[in-house]
Nucleic acid binder design. Structure first.
Length: 223
DNA sequence: GCGACAG
DNA sequence: ATCTTGTCGC
């Protein structure tokens, strides 16, 4: 999968202060409206850590749409180069993800990441960051809230309520499965909140996480 | 100052 | 995130 060349985004040796400054610039480049064509392949991405955080592991599963059949799987491990700082998680996770996408054979039309999209204090969660880098539509599906407020979500599979920060709607809180804590869906790059929500719904199987992310999660945790 | 804080 | 088994409930 071709990666958008951009020297500005290659600098990972940043102090937290510098990362925040770069983060603001990148967030301004994230497209918040739909720019998405025919979807043939969806990538599910999960990034985690091993060896007490010394190693970063990225798992990517490519699914065919609409069958959701798996067409490619890949796991890469690379030394971690940044500590965990809330709000700067993408800078810690992305190097491994990029390495995985660089090795991927399939081209993907939509990227679903385990984590937030624009539902982030400075609107640059890992899903937005990765989508921007790869110049692909992306969305984030997170298991915990990072920012924003929301009301109760009806206890019925597929129900959702907006996640907002003041007047701004960042995404939705979705009951992906009955009687299970809801997930946080937000668009990353080139997607509106509504379209991101529809894709999350369309990829729901019988589990809490939508298929792309669930399979990436599973691939990552079975060594 | 105090609490919150994706993975 | 990670360290970790069985168990209760929908």
């Amino acid at each position: 999968m071709p990666i958008l060349p951009d020297h500005q985004m290659h600098d990972w040796d940043l102090t937290p202060r510098q990362a925040v400054a770069l983060q603001r610039e990148l967030a301004a480049r994230v497209e918040r409206s739909d720019r998405i064509a025919d979807v043939r392949h969806i990538a599910g991405v999960d990034i985690g850590f091993e060896q007490h955080g010394e190693v970063t592991r990225a798992a990517v599963v490519v699914l065919e749409w609409p069958s959701l059949a798996v067409v490619e799987e890949l796991v890469v491990q690379t030394p971690t180069r940044m500590p965990y700082i809330p709000g700067l998680l993408s800078f810690r996770e992305i190097p491994a993800a990029l390495q995985a996408f660089a090795q991927l054979q399939s081209d993907v039309d939509l990227i679903m990441v385990d984590g937030h999209g624009v539902a982030h204090p400075r609107r640059l969660g890992v899903a937005a960051h990765l989508g921007l880098w790869l110049d692909r539509p992306s969305l984030g599906v997170a298991k915990k809230r990072l920012t924003g407020q929301h009301g109760e979500v009806e206890n019925q599979r597929g129900a959702y309520t907006p996640l907002r920060d003041g007047d701004e709607v960042l995404g939705v809180v979705m009951r992906s499965r009955q009687s299970v804590k809801p997930v946080f869906v937000s668009p990353g790059h080139r997607l509106s909140v509504d379209t991101a929500t529809q894709w999350a719904l369309a990829c729901l199987g019988r589990y809490k996480l939508p298929e792309p992310t669930r399979l990436a999660d599973r691939l990552a945790s079975r060594r």
